[in-house]
C-alpha cells in the first residue's frame, strides 16, 4: 500500500430520476458504486471504516447538473481513463462521470475553495420570459433582497453575482444566474424563484458550472 493517498477529482452529471436524490443519498450512492468498481479506494481511519469521499456542494432536490464535482482518494495510482470507465459501469444511468483527473493532495477541500455556482433556469410559459425579466429586475432595484431561512434573515442581493437572459435557445427561454456558493454566503436558485412567484417545480434548473478560487 502506498502511504500517500492519491487524490482523484471527478466531474459528473446528475439528471433524470436521480435528480430527486438528496445530498446524503447521493454520497451513499457513490460509496456503493465505488465499492462495486473494486478500485483500491482509501478508507477513513478508525473503528468504523468508511470510504473517504468529498462532494463539493449539495445540489438542491429536483435540480439537474452537468458540473458536479467530488474528490475520492485511492491507495495507489490508477489510470484516470480506467477510473472513469469503471465508475460509469458501476453508476446508475442517471449519473455520468464526465471527467476524472489526479489532483494535488495538498489542495484545500472542495467546499473551502468553492466560490460560486452557475445555473440555467428554463423559464416556464407561464409567466414567460418578459414577465420573468421584469420581476427579476424589479427585485434587483430594491436595496436588499431578504429572505428568512432557519429563523435567520439573509440578504440575497450581494449573492447574485451575474445574470443574463436567453430567448429562443434550443431549450426554450432561459435565464443564466451565477450565485455565491461559499460556505458563509450560499444562495439557492429555488429561493430566488420563490421570490419571483414561480414554483421551482415548474422550471428545469440545471447547474452548469462550479467555480472555485
Amino acid at each position: 500500500m502506498n502511504d500517500t493517498p492519491i487524490r482523484i477529482r471527478v466531474k459528473y452529471s446528475k439528471s433524470g430520476n436521480l435528480r430527486f436524490l438528496g445530498h446524503i443519498d447521493t454520497q451513499n450512492l457513490f460509496e456503493r458504486a465505488l465499492r462495486r468498481t473494486e478500485l483500491p479506494i482509501r478508507h477513513t481511519q478508525g473503528f468504523n471504516k468508511r470510504i473517504r469521499i468529498n462532494l463539493a456542494s449539495a445540489l438542491p432536490l429536483g435540480f439537474i447538473s452537468e458540473a458536479e464535482i467530488l474528490d475520492i482518494w485511492l491507495d495507489q495510482p490508477i489510470d484516470t481513463e480506467i477510473i472513469g470507465k469503471k465508475l460509469n459501469e458501476a453508476l446508475p444511468d442517471d449519473i455520468k462521470v464526465l471527467e476524472v483527473q489526479m489532483v494535488d493532495n495538498a489542495l484545500p477541500s472542495l467546499q473551502a475553495s468553492l466560490v460560486s455556482s452557475d445555473y440555467l433556469i428554463s423559464i416556464p410559459a407561464d409567466p414567460g420570459l418578459e414577465t420573468f425579466k421584469n420581476r427579476f429586475q424589479a427585485l434587483l432595484t430594491g436595496e436588499k433582497i431578504e429572505i428568512i431561512k432557519r429563523k435567520k434573515t439573509i440578504d440575497l442581493k450581494p449573492m447574485i453575482l451575474d445574470y443574463s437572459f436567453q430567448s429562443e435557445s434550443p431549450d426554450g427561454d432561459q435565464s443564466f444566474i451565477r450565485l455565491s456558493s461559499s460556505p458563509n454566503a450560499n444562495a439557492r436558485p429555488d429561493d430566488l424563484l420563490q421570490l419571483l412567484e414561480i414554483d421551482p417545480a415548474d422550471c428545469l434548473v440545471k447547474r452548469t458550472k462550479l467555480n472555485f478560487s
Binding site: S15, E66, T80, K96, L98, Q101, P170, D171, L204
Partner: peptide, 27 residues
C-alpha cells in the same frame, strides 16, 4: 476544471446533455 493528460472526458455525452433530452427520459 483544468485539463491535463491525466484527464478522462466524455464529450459526446456532454453534447447530448440538454434539458430536452432529459425531460424525455422522465415521466
Amino acid at each position: 476544471m483544468k485539463k491535463s493528460s491525466q484527464t478522462y472526458t466524455i464529450t459526446t455525452l456532454q453534447k447530448k446533455f440538454t434539458a430536452k433530452a432529459i425531460l424525455i427520459t422522465i415521466m
